[in-house]
Computed example of a mutant assay.
Amino acid sequence: MNWLLPEYIADVLPHEAAHIELLRRAVLDLFRVRGYELVMPPLLEHLDSLLTGSGSDLRLRTFKLVDQLSGRTLGLRADMTPQVARIDAHLLNRQGVTRLCYCGSVLHTLPALQASSREPIQLGAELFGYAGIEADLEAIRLMAVVLGTAGIPASRIDIGHVGVFRALAGAAGLADDVEAKILQLLQVKDIPSLHDACEKVAEPYRSAFLRLPELYGDGNILETASRELPALPEIASALEAMRHLQTSLPELPLSFDLADLRGYHYHNGVVFAAYYPGFPSAIALGGRYDGVGKDFGRTRPATGFSMDLREVARLAVSGKAGGAIMAPHSATDSALASQIEALREQGEVVVELLPGESCCEGPLCDRQLVENDGQWTVRETIGD
C-alpha cells in the first residue's frame, strides 16, 4: 500500500489548500502593512542551532538525521522561532527594533494533540529589540487581529507571567529537582500531588505555590495576588505588567492565569494563549523570550506569537465551497476569450472547459458563462 502516508501526516486537498493559501496571503499582507518583514528559514539546520534557548522543550519533538556532507547531526525544524531569533541576532544584526514574520511547515515527532497533524504550518510574528511592555501589548493585539481576520476571533486570551513562579522558586531556595516537580504539577494542576511536593517548602512560599492554581480569572485576580502572594519585587513587577495589559486592551476578552507556565524554560516574562470555542487547546500561543539570541552572538529582547495555519483554516468559516464560473472553450471565439480574461482580472475563478468536456470537475462551479444575443454574461445557476 504505497499510497498510505505516515500516521498524523496528510495531504491537503484542493478546497482546503485554497483556503489555507488565501488566509496565508491575507495574514502576511496584514503583517506587511504593520512593518513586519517576511523571512524564510531553511527546513533543516544543525541540531544545536534549532534547539538554542529551548532546552528539552523541543529536543524530543525534533526529527534528527546525519548530514552526509559533514557528519554532523541535523534537525528538521519543529519550531521556527529559534530560527527567526538567529536571523535577527546574527544575519540582520540591526541595533533598533526589528519586526519579522514567517509562515512555513514544521515537523513534529509526535502530534501535539490526538487529532493534530505532525506537519503544522507555523505562522507567526516576532518583535526584537524592545524590552518594554508595549512590545508585548503589540504582539497580543496583533495576534487578536490575525484571528479576527481569519474569522475565528478569540473567545478568551489567557495572560500569565513566568516571573511569578521564578521569583517564588528563587526566594524559597528550591533544589532543582523540587522546583522541576512543583513546576510539572502546576502545569497539570494536580493539586493533591502539589500539596505533597510542597510539604517541606518553608512558609510563606509553600502557601503561595498552593495558591497559584486558584489565581485564575478576570482582572480582580491580580489584586488578590497582590494581597496574598509574598511581597517580592519580581512579583510586584509581573503583576504591574499584567495590569498594564488589562488597562490597554479593554476590547479583548482577557483573563489571567498565574499558574500558566507553558514554555517556562524558554519564556522569561509575559506569556499569552488564545482560545476558540470547540478547539481543545490554545489556537495561538506567544510570550516574551529575551536572550535567546545570546548563543547566536547577541542578546536581544524578544516577544511574539505563532499558530498553526492548518488548524486556523480548518476552524475558520470558509463561506462558499466553490464559487467558480464554468465557461465554454474559447479558442475560436475572441469575444468569449476577452470576457473570460476580464472576469479573471476581477478576481473571479473561471474554469474553461476543454473540447468535449461537459462539466467542471475541479473547483465547484456554481455559475456559468452563457451567450445571450451575442453577449457573454454570467448566469447564477448551472444549466443547459
Results as ranks from 00 to 15, higher is better:
residue 184 Q to R: 15
residue 272 F to E: 06
residue 310 R to L: 08
residue 1 M to S: 13
residue 180 A to M: 05
residue 335 A to H: 09
residue 261 L to V: 08
residue 119 E to P: 00
residue 316 A to I: 06
residue 208 A to H: 02
residue 66 V to P: 06
residue 189 K to C: 14
residue 359 C to P: 00
residue 155 S to P: 00
residue 380 E to V: 13
residue 271 V to S: 01
residue 74 L to F: 14
residue 9 I to P: 03
residue 32 R to Q: 13
residue 198 C to T: 14
residue 141 R to E: 08
residue 280 P to V: 09
residue 210 L to K: 05
residue 7 E to K: 14
residue 126 E to S: 04
residue 373 D to T: 08
residue 181 K to M: 09
residue 320 K to H: 11
residue 240 E to L: 10
residue 28 L to G: 05
residue 381 T to R: 10
residue 239 L to F: 00
residue 251 E to W: 01
residue 312 V to Y: 06
residue 6 P to D: 10
residue 208 A to S: 07
residue 18 A to P: 06
residue 364 L to T: 14
residue 145 V to D: 08
residue 33 V to S: 10
residue 121 I to E: 03
residue 293 G to M: 05
residue 52 T to F: 00
residue 332 T to R: 15
residue 182 I to L: 14
residue 132 G to Y: 02
residue 310 R to Y: 03
residue 316 A to M: 08
residue 145 V to Y: 00
residue 186 L to G: 12
residue 69 L to H: 12
residue 89 A to H: 00
residue 119 E to R: 10
residue 265 H to T: 11
residue 25 R to I: 09
residue 247 T to M: 07
residue 299 T to F: 10
residue 159 I to L: 15
residue 258 L to S: 01
residue 296 F to I: 04
residue 94 R to K: 15
residue 306 S to F: 15
residue 130 Y to C: 15
residue 277 P to Y: 03
residue 255 S to V: 03
residue 245 L to G: 00
residue 2 N to L: 13
residue 71 G to S: 09
residue 166 R to Y: 05
residue 59 R to G: 01
residue 4 L to M: 10
residue 57 D to F: 07
residue 253 P to Y: 00
residue 201 V to Q: 04
residue 114 Q to K: 14
residue 263 G to W: 03
residue 83 Q to I: 05
residue 1 M to V: 11
residue 51 L to N: 01
residue 323 G to K: 10
residue 256 F to A: 02
residue 175 A to T: 12
residue 169 A to G: 12
residue 218 D to M: 02
